[in-house]
């Protein structure tokens, strides 16, 4: 299958290795990966701020860029939700059809692997790892990916340790973390304070990781965060040298960087 990667702003600049792992993973699963170069921002910052006209302009740009793609995969539950759930709300009459069609062909990475490809066993590269899963709000409550990420991690041999605040918002929320910075930080603290002892925290959203990791580091919590794409590629590619537990900060200092 031909899959277009929609890398997203944060993954392009802050989680480049996780985005590369997404490509490796998709290729490993038999997909031909393309990267439409004209892609930009999905428009969610403007949409969440109530600037729907600006968001619609970005949506229409993105719809044009991915118009002819068989499937579009994003290493982000939040940006995938923007395309799948919010573009159809934004687009007016004729583009609405286009938006609905794109929404149907667009997937968050874990969603694509489980629901579209029907794969839950990627390899056993995570055997013996204790991981906590941060369920991103959009992936969980908009895309209803309630079981998919955990199934993939467990399928790779990881123990997904129960976490009381697993499904609670980390407090990022884009503009929210800037406008209501104290509440946002307190929300991250609740996540960190309830975190069980694990090798790392896995999340499918770079925004959540930047926020939680930033809070964790300023408090000296010493928690390691790994992007879902990187964790899943580890599941396949168990042979590569530096183990997941040794990488911190979302794989930004991970393999291929040194």
């Amino acid at each position: 299958m031909k899959v277009a990667l929609f890398v997203t702003c944060l993954a392009d600049h802050y989680f480049a290795e996780a985005a590369a792992d997404t490509v490796r993973l998709l290729r490993h699963l038999g997909c031909e990966v393309t990267f439409p170069d004209a892609q930009t921002c999905c428009g969610q910052p403007a949409y969440n701020a109530g600037m729907s006209r600006e968001a619609a302009r970005m949506a229409h740009h993105t719809m044009d860029v991915f118009a002819d793609c068989e499937a579009v995969v994003l290493p982000s539950g939040s940006c995938a939700t923007m395309v799948k759930r919010f573009y159809p709300r934004l687009a007016a009459s004729n583009p609405a059809v286009q938006a609905a069609a794109l929404a149907d062909r667009t997937f968050e990475l874990g969603e694509f692997i489980v629901r579209r490809l029907g794969v839950t066993r990627l390899g056993d590269g995570l055997a013996g790892r204790r991981v906590a899963l941060h369920q991103g709000c959009h992936a969980l409550r908009e895309l209803r990916l309630e079981t998919e990420p955990a199934a993939l991690l467990e399928g790779a041999g990881a123990e997904v340790v129960p976490w009381a605040a697993s499904d609670e918002c980390c407090g990022f929320g884009g503009l929210f973390s800037v406008k209501m910075t104290d509440v946002s930080a307190a929300m991250a603290d609740r996540k960190l304070d309830t975190l069980p002892r694990v090798d790392c925290v896995v999340s499918g959203d770079g925004g959540c990781i930047l926020h939680l990791d930033g809070r964790s580091r300023i408090r000296g919590c010493g928690v390691k965060f790994v992007h879902l794409a990187t964790a899943l590629w580890r599941a396949v590619d168990e042979g590569v040298g530096d183990g997941m537990a040794e990488r911190d900060h979302g794989g930004r200092h991970g393999r291929g960087n040194g």
Partner: peptide, 25 residues
Amino acid sequence: DWSNDRSLPSPSPRTFRQLWREGIK
């Protein structure tokens, strides 16, 4: 204000676009 409460992230050494152009193995 954001950075008072959180350590600022450092960007990836190379963007994904750069990695893609160079070829991902």
